[in-house]
């Protein structure tokens, strides 16, 4: 990992106009509410958070698959959030996505060889012979049988399909791979194969990953640094081991405390902190700290004053008036 910053997001906001559940009339839902972060070349930045907290929306904004409502995204030194589609095109190939459901993201009527060749053809990678050779090389790289190039997606298992999705993402030598829940649909033994493969590919091609998942174990395993999201905001960011061992935000602490553990050693279990209630509707954001209605340590200040994401120590930020483990 270097210190070179591959992507820098500043105050990214994304709002959707929706019908609020509560009021039944059109309403603005802020899915991403002012996120700032940096991704360094060669690292894996993990993003965790519960369903609906804005992980996918953030990822899509960062690679400009979704236009941002406001804020700035700089990729390889270029401000990309205001570029036209055409100006964006040469940069797009350097930012690739791997999705959760490999099946939904692969065209069922194309052979898997064609699926992987498609980005190469669109980007005029070379002659058909060169493209075919590249496809075979990609198949070998991700551990798929080159004799299966002419088969269709439904003939493959979930794990194999995810390998096909990864091969396609790698076709154009991207610098950033955004993986949105890439292993959530897989069984644990197959999940482990895909995670190991992603680690090998990162070493081999010096890839940078933005890795999104709701599984806290998976995120710790893959990430160098981790950001925790709640209701469209990053509430805590830091080195993966630090953040897991000494969480500062009460939400991170609660989240980690309730992950079911195998409990196969004599080490004492973290004391469970069971949060009350549900995550609020992003169209009906609480005042002050977004987490205050569920926070076990909230005070009046939390209801009124929104805590900013503050760097407590180099590389360690938290958005809470009363951070733990901060001393």
């Amino acid at each position: 990992m270097s210190n070179e910053i591959l992507l820098k997001a500043t105050d990214v906001v994304k709002t959707f106009s929706t019908r609020s559940k509560k009021f039944g009339r059109p309403h603005l839902a802020t899915a991403v509410n002012g996120v700032s972060l940096e991704i360094r070349r060669g690292e894996t930045l993990g993003i965790v958070g519960e369903s609906g907290c804005g992980k996918s929306t953030l990822a899509r904004c960062l690679v400009q698959l979704l236009p941002t409502t406001s804020g700035s995204v700089v990729f390889e030194g270029v401000e990309i959030s205001k570029l036209s589609r055409r100006a964006l095109r040469p940069l797009r190939r350097k930012m690739q996505l791997v999705f959760q459901d490999p099946y939904a993201s692969l065209n069922p009527r194309r052979t898997v060889g064609d699926i992987v060749a498609e980005p190469l053809r669109i980007n005029k990678f070379g002659t058909e012979v060169v493209i075919q050779e590249r496809v075979r090389e990609l198949f070998r790289t991700v551990g798929l049988d080159v004799n299966s190039l002419t088969r269709y997606p439904h003939e493959f298992s979930g794990g194999q399909r995810q390998r096909i999705g990864i091969a396609r993402a790698l076709a154009l030598n991207p610098s950033l791979v955004v993986a949105d829940e890439p292993v959530s649909a897989l069984d644990v033994s197959v999940q482990a194969q895909v995670l190991n493969l992603m680690a090998d590919l990162q070493d081999k091609f010096n890839l940078t990953y933005l890795f999104i998942a709701h599984d806290l174990g998976v995120v710790r395993h893959v990430s160098d640094r981790v950001g925790v999201m709640y209701l469209g905001e990053i509430v805590e960011l830091g080195d993966a081991d630090e953040l897991y061992d000494r969480p500062m935000h009460p939400y991170t602490e609660a989240l980690l405390s309730v992950v079911p553990e195998l409990n196969d050693t004599d080490a004492p279990r973290r004391e469970r902190i069971i949060l009350k209630g549900d995550v609020p509707d992003p169209a009906d954001r609480p005042s002050g700290c977004s987490f205050h209605p569920r926070c076990p340590v909230a005070t009046d200040k939390c209801k009124e004053v929104k805590p900013a994401l503050v760097e407590i120590r180099p590389g360690r930020s938290v958005a809470c008036h009363y951070p733990k483990n901060a001393g």
């Binding site: 644990v188 033994s189 999940q191 482990a192 194969q193 995670l195 190991n196 680690a199 599984d215 806290l216 174990g217 998976v218 710790r220 395993h221 993966a240 081991d241 897991y244 980690l256 992950v259 553990e261 195998l262 196969d264 080490a267």
Partner: peptide, 17 residues
């Protein structure tokens, strides 16, 4: 099955598969 589970308590480089 047990070796393939990524843990939150600690991190090892490779998962059993």
């Amino acid at each position: 099955l047990l070796g393939a589970v990524p843990r939150i308590e600690s991190r090892n480089d490779r998962l059993a598969t």
